[in-house]
C-alpha cells in the first residue's frame, strides 16, 4: 500500500504570546513543531505499515527550508521518505493556493491508496486544506476520522467524529482522511530513526518541478486576504447552578427573570 501524509511545521502555540499592543503573535524564539493533528495522521499511516510492512509512507509538506527538520522528525518516527515544497513563489499562500500546490505534488508522486492529513493546523485553524486537496485530485474524503475500523481491499471503514456521536463510513480508495487527536497517540521517534533521518535525502520541489507558473502559486493565487487577526476579550466567569435539576431550573428561571430576559 502507498500512503501519503500531509504534514505542516507550525509554531508551538502553547508557547506563543500575544503582543498586547499590536495584537499580533510574537513568534520570536518560539519553537517550531510538527502540527499535532498531523502527528495523528502520521501515526495512523505508521500503524498500517506496522501491520503490512511493505507499505510505503511518504511525507508531503510545504514551507520554508527549516521545515526539513520536521520532515526528518517524521522519518525518525518511521516514515519512508519526504518531499518538501519550498519556493519563494509559494509564499503567502492561502488554503486555495496551498491545496493546489500540494495536490500538484501528489499528482507528480504518482499512485497512492490513502492520503492522511491532520484535521487542521494550530496556526491557521482552517481545516480546509485536506478536503480541498481531495477535491482537486477528484477523490473522496472523510474528515474528523476518530477510528479506522477496517482496511478492505478497495475501501476503508472509518468512524467520523460528530459532536455527540460518530458516523461509520465506508470509503473507496484512493481517498483522503483527516485525523483528529482521538484517532491515536503518536509514537516517539527512535534514536536509530533519527540517525537514519539525517542520512536520508529529502526531495525539495519548487514551482518548476510542479509545472506551475509563479502567478498560479502562493500569494498571487490566493483570493483570501487576512484583514486583521485578534484575540477576543475573555468573557467573565459564568455562574454555575448547583443542586437538583429542579433547584437548578429554578435558579436559572430566577436569574433570567431578574435580568428581564423572560
Amino acid at each position: 500500500m502507498k500512503i501519503i501524509v500531509c504534514a505542516k511545521q507550525v509554531p508551538d502555540t502553547t508557547e506563543v504570546r500575544i503582543d498586547p499592543v499590536k495584537g499580533t503573535l510574537i513568534r520570536d524564539g518560539v519553537p517550531s513543531i510538527l502540527n499535532p493533528d498531523d502527528a495523528n495522521a502520521l501515526e495512523a499511516a505508521l500503524c498500517i505499515k506496522d501491520a503490512a510492512p511493505d507499505t510505503k509512507v511518504t511525507i508531503v509538506s510545504m514551507g520554508p527550508p527549516q521545515a526539513m527538520e520536521m520532515i526528518r522528525e517524521c522519518l525518525a518516527m518511521g516514515a519512508d521518505d519526504g518531499v518538501l515544497l519550498s519556493d519563494r513563489a509559494f509564499g503567502g499562500a492561502d488554503t486555495i493556493a496551498t491545496s493546489s500546490q500540494i495536490a500538484g505534488a501528489i499528482r507528480k508522486l504518482g499512485e497512492y491508496d490513502i492520503i492522511f492529513a491532520g484535521r487542521q493546523a494550530i496556526d491557521g485553524d482552517t481545516a480546509q486544506v485536506g478536503p480541498q486537496i481531495a477535491r482537486r485530485l477528484g477523490i473522496p474524503s472523510v474528515t474528523y476520522v476518530q477510528k479506522i475500523r477496517e482496511i478492505k481491499e478497495k475501501s476503508v471503514v472509518v468512524e467520523r467524529q460528530m459532536e455527540d456521536g460518530y458516523e461509520v463510513l465506508e470509503v473507496q480508495m484512493p481517498c483522503l482522511l483527516t485525523a483528529v487527536k482521538e484517532l491515536n497517540t503518536p509514537r516517539y521517534m527512535t534514536v536509530s530513526g533519527i540517525m537514519d533521518a539525517y542520512n536520508a535525502q529529502i526531495t525539495v520541489w519548487n514551482h518548476n518541478d510542479l509545472g506551475m507558473a509563479p502567478e498560479n502559486c502562493g500569494l498571487a493565487a490566493s483570493p483570501t486576504q487576512v484583514l486583521r487577526s485578534f484575540t477576543p476579550a475573555p468573557k467573565g466567569k459564568g455562574e454555575m447552578a448547583s443542586g437538583s435539576v429542579k433547584d437548578m431550573a429554578k435558579t436559572l428561571v430566577d436569574r433570567l427573570s431578574e435580568k428581564h430576559l423572560i
Binding site: 526528518r72 522528525e73 525518525a76 521517534m189 533521518a197 539525517y198
Partner: peptide, 8 residues
C-alpha cells in the same frame, strides 16, 4: 541530529 535526540 544531536538536538533532535535531545528533543526526543
Amino acid at each position: 541530529k544531536h538536538e533532535m535526540v535531545r528533543k526526543l
